[in-house]
Design a protein around this nucleic acid. Structure first.
Length: 477
RNA sequence: GCAUCGGUAGCCAAGCGGCAAGGCGUCGGUCUGCAAAACCGAAAAGCGUGGGUUCGAUUCCCACCCGAUGCUCCA
C-alpha cells in the first residue's frame, strides 16, 4: 500500500516518496493576519491537518511548518484605520487564528515562522538573487527578473508570453520601474510613516513571495517534500516562490505541490476581497459544533470546489450525530459490557480505510468506512438501551468501537460531550416531577394534559421518550 | 483570450475500463393513545452533449456546451 498524491507541478497523481525515508518535511502557506479566518481558511488548514495526521498515522516523522504573514499592505492599511500598530493588529489576529483553528481540532504546527522575525534571511536571499542576476534594484525597490528564470510558469502551466498584464486591474505605480511587467517585488521601498527595516537597497520591507522562500530555506532546507496551500496561491505566489528558491539554490523547492479547492458561496469563491465570507467564528457562535465543520469539509475531496450552504451544514450536523453517538459508545457502555481497556482494531477495516486515504487523500471514501462502523455501533447502542442487552458479541463490538475511534482520530474527529447542562430552564428534579404528573395523566387517559406537559418541556428543549415498558426517559436537545 | 480544474439520484459526494460507495433528505412498515427516537424496508442517477477507440466506457481519446479558479490582494 503506497500513498499517492496529486502533484500540481506534474498534473498527475504520483507515488509519495519522501527525500529521507520515514521523514516528511511539509510547509503550508499560512494566513495574512488582518482579519478573522473564514470557512475557506478552515477548509485549507483542516485538509492539510488531515494529511499530516495521516502521515503520522502511517508512521512518518512529520515536520510541519506554517507561516504567518505579518507584514503586508492590507495589514498596514487596517492598522492605520484602527489607529494601532501593525504588530498590535497582527498579534491580535494570530491569537484569533489559534482560537478558531484549535477549536476545529487542527494540530499546532511545529514551527510558526513570522515574516518580521526573518528579515535578515530574506535580505540574504534577495542579495543572492541580485548577485546571480535574477534580481535588480530600482528606485529603492528590488524586483525579480522573471525572464532570467527559464522555467518560469512551470507550476501553473503558463508561459510568460501568454500572461495578460494587468488582467486583475491592479496596476501599481511602480510598474514603470520594471524591466518586464511580470517582474515582481522582492523588496519594497518604505513610504513615510510605514514600518521599515534597513537594507542595502534602502529602508523598506519584503514583498509577499520572498518570505516563504526565505523561511522554508531557513527552517527546512533547500528542498522539502510537501508544499501545500490554497489553489488560489498557485499563481503567482507559488510560481514566484519556485523562481526565487530554485534560482538561488539550483535545487527543487518542493517535490510535491498540493493545492486545495476553494470554498464557494452562491457559486462564487469565498474570499475576503469579495466580502462574501463566513468566518469560523460566525459559524461556531451559531452555534455549530466544530466537528460538524470538519465533517462538512472532509465529506468532499480536498481538490474539488466545496459549496457552502446552510443546508449542507445542517446535513453535516445530522451526520455528525451518528458518528458522535458511536464514538461515545465506549465511554458510555464499555465498562458495563466488560470491554478490555484497549480493544484491538480490526486490521481488515483499517486496510480498507488506508486504501481510500492512500488514493490522494480520499476522505469521502474514508468516511464511508467510518459510517459503516458508526451505524453498527449506533444500532447496538439502541438495541442495548431499549432492549437491555446486545444482539452482537460484546468483545467484537469493542473492536468495532476501537477501530472507529482510531480512524476518526486520523481525520481529527473526536467525540464531543453530550449537551451542556449549563443552560437555564427547569432543573432535573422539576423535570422528573412533570414526568410523574404526565404519567398519572396518561394512566387516566387524559392525553390532552399529558401532551401539554410534553409540549411544554419540548419548548424548553427537553425531549421526552416513552419507553416500551411504560417508563419515560428524557434528554436535553 | 490563455491556463487549470470540474459537470454523477431531490441535495451533498466517491468511483474512473467489466453490471454506479457513502452522507443528508423523501416514502412505507414496526413501536406509540398520538408523537419523538430507534429499528426494518423502499423508491430515486445509467454518470453535461455529440462523436471515436474497445468484446465492453461514467471511466480512455476528440469536439462542443456550461461552471469555477488564476492571469501579480487571496487558503
Amino acid at each position: 500500500m503506497t500513498l499517492t498524491l496529486y502533484n500540481t507541478q506534474t498534473r498527475q497523481t504520483e507515488t509519495f516518496t519522501p527525500l529521507e525515508p520515514g521523514k516528511v518535511k511539509m510547509y503550508c502557506c499560512g494566513v495574512t493576519v488582518y482579519d478573522l479566518c473564514h470557512l475557506g481558511h478552515a477548509r485549507s488548514y483542516i485538509v492539510w491537518d488531515v494529511l499530516r495526521r495521516y502521515l503520522l498515522w502511517r508512521g512518518y516523522d512529520v515536520q510541519y511548518v506554517q507561516n504567518f504573514t505579518d507584514i503586508d499592505d492590507k495589514i498596514l492599511r487596517r492598522a492605520q484605520e484602527r489607529g494601532v500598530t501593525m504588530q498590535e493588529l497582527s498579534d491580535r489576529y494570530i491569537d484569533e487564528y489559534f482560537t478558531d483553528l484549535r477549536s476545529l481540532n487542527v494540530m499546532d504546527a511545529d514551527v510558526y515562522p513570522r515574516v518580521t522575525e526573518h528579515i535578515p534571511e530574506i535580505c540574504d536571499l534577495i542579495q543572492a538573487l541580485i548577485d546571480q542576476g535574477y534580481a535588480y534594484p530600482a528606485g529603492g525597490d528590488v524586483y525579480y527578473r522573471v525572464e532570467r528564470f527559464g522555467s518560469y510558469g512551470k507550476l501553473s502551466g503558463r508561459k510568460l508570453e501568454d500572461l495578460q498584464a494587468g488582467a486583475s486591474g491592479r496596476v501599481s505605480e511602480a510598474e514603470a520601474q520594471k524591466e518586464n511587467p511580470f517582474d515582481f517585488a522582492l523588496w519594497k521601498r518604505a513610504k513615510p510613516d510605514e514600518p521599515h527595516w534597513d537594507s542595502p537597497w534602502g529602508a523598506g520591507r519584503p514583498g509577499w513571495h520572498i518570505e516563504c522562500s526565505a523561511m522554508v530555506r531557513a527552517i527546512l532546507g533547500d528542498t522539502i517534500d510537501l508544499h501545500t496551500g490554497g489553489g488560489d496561491l498557485i499563481f503567482p505566489h507559488h510560481e514566484n516562490e519556485i523562481a526565487q528558491s530554485e534560482a538561488a539554490s539550483q535545487k527543487p523547492l518542493a517535490n510535491y505541490w498540493l493545492h486545495n479547492g476553494m470554498v464557494r458561496i452562491d457559486a462564487e469563491k469565498m474570499s475576503k476581497s469579495l466580502n462574501n465570507f463566513v468566518t469560523i467564528r460566525d459559524l461556531l457562535e451559531r452555534p455549530t459544533e466544530p466537528m460538524v465543520l470538519r465533517l462538512f469539509v472532509l465529506q468532499a475531496h480536498y481538490r474539488k470546489p466545496l459549496e457552502f450552504t446552510a443546508e449542507a451544514i445542517a446535513a453535516a450536523e445530522n451526520s455528525w450525530n451518528t458518528i458522535n453517538e458511536a464514538l461515545r459508545f465506549g465511554s458510555d457502555y464499555g465498562k458495563q459490557l466488560g470491554w478490555p481497556d484497549s480493544p484491538e482494531c480490526q486490521a481488515e477495516v483499517q486496510a480498507r480505510f488506508t486504501t481510500a486515504m492512500d488514493s490522494d487523500l480520499n476522505t469521502p471514501g474514508g468516511l464511508a468506512i467510518i459510517f459503516e462502523l458508526a451505524k453498527e455501533l449506533r444500532t447496538q447502542r439502541n438495541v442495548l438501551v431499549h432492549g437491555g442487552k446486545l444482539e452482537s458479541d460484546a468483545q467484537q463490538l469493542a473492536q468495532v468501537w476501537a477501530t472507529l475511534v482510531e480512524l476518526a482520530q486520523v481525520l481529527g474527529l473526536e467525540a464531543t460531550a453530550a449537551g451542556t447542562s449549563t443552560e437555564s430552564g427547569p432543573g432535573d428534579a422539576e423535570i422528573e416531577q412533570l414526568i410523574e404528573q404526565r404519567a398519572v395523566a396518561r394512566k387516566a387517559k387524559d392525553f390532552a394534559e399529558s401532551d401539554r406537559i410534553r409540549d411544554e418541556l419540548k419548548a424548553q428543549g427537553i425531549v421526552l421518550v416513552d419507553q416500551k415498558g411504560g417508563g419515560t426517559t428524557w434528554h436535553r436537545e
